[in-house]
Design a protein around this nucleic acid. Structure first.
Lengths: 152, 152
DNA sequence: ATAGGGCTTCCCATCATGGGAAGGTCAAGA
DNA sequence: TCTTGACCTTCCCATGATGGGAAGCCCTAT
């Protein structure tokens, strides 16, 4: 008994909020916890270890779906390291794509801000760029289906 | 009449989906569109220009709340360029923070993956790190309220 | 006994976006 | 003229991870 913890203690010890622990249980990421007679959830060292694993994986940006896989591999003594690597590499690719996207936004925004007079005059290259039909800010070539011609 | 467009045409011309145009109307980012007798929304050049403005701002990662401000400034002849700059600079700061977060995840993940044997053996430094209590992967100093001591 | 803090479940909100159903409208072709 | 198909309308639901908050039960210290 002495190593069984309530959800609040498990949260403090693992860094995962009580709210999220219940959520992870509900979506099946972790199994249903033991309960006291009064219905309180109880967590032992193994469960808290798992929660820490989950928190670390979340800190690395892994999605819950990824973590389902990682936990399965973690508990699978016959796992192949390349299977783990595959999950990690997939996530790394997604992170790199996201980083590239954000960095290009930063780049574009820095250029716009650099051109701003930063005073009380209304002239503003930022708004000029955003409203300029000829110079679409950071145009994503996505979703522009200009095949249609106007009907009216 | 000849320059009035249905929502599908406005979507194609602006790069904002019809779904989102209706959504922007509902949340008040844009005003209610004119309607035909049958209830179809109609968009003129000014509205489509605004939609393009919105799409460009979204491409730069501005939130809808930011865009409300930017549209207000855009239409305000007496705006001060520094007010625009302030909105943009605030967003830039958020983007930089996000980028730093993602880059540190990438960095940590690259190190883990580099140590992976990538074969059929079960030994795996990635899982080892995630499960290692002593070496928390990319520990965020966030949310660790370790003031509490275990009660049990 | 009572107060306060922790626990339970349930519902709602975020943020931007899309999917899909049920039904009305319109234009082109048989 | 009728049909067909592509559009439009509104309404509801889902995403993903997280938190807020209410109503009510439980436990412990005063």
């Amino acid at each position: 008994m002495s190593q069984l913890h309530t959800i609040g203690e498990a949260a403090a010890d693992s860094g995962v909020s009580a709210k999220m622990i219940r959520h992870y249980e509900k979506i099946g990421l972790i199994g249903a916890a033991e309960r006291t007679e009064a219905g309180y959830r109880l967590y032992g060292p193994a469960e808290i270890h798992t929660l820490r694993f989950i928190r670390r994986a979340r800190n690395l940006g892994f999605s819950v779906d990824d973590i389902v896989e990682l936990l399965g591999l973690w508990h699978d003594e016959k796992r192949a390291s390349k299977d783990v690597r595959e999950v990690a590499a997939g996530h790394l690719g997604a992170l790199r794509a996201k980083a590239a996207e954000i960095l290009s936004m930063i780049d574009a925004l820095e250029h716009l801000i650099a051109g701003c007079t930063n005073d009380d005059r209304p002239d503003c290259p930022i708004l000029k760029d955003l409203s300029n039909d000829a110079n679409p800010a950071l145009a994503k070539e996505v979703g522009h289906k200009f095949g249609y011609q106007r009907v009216c």
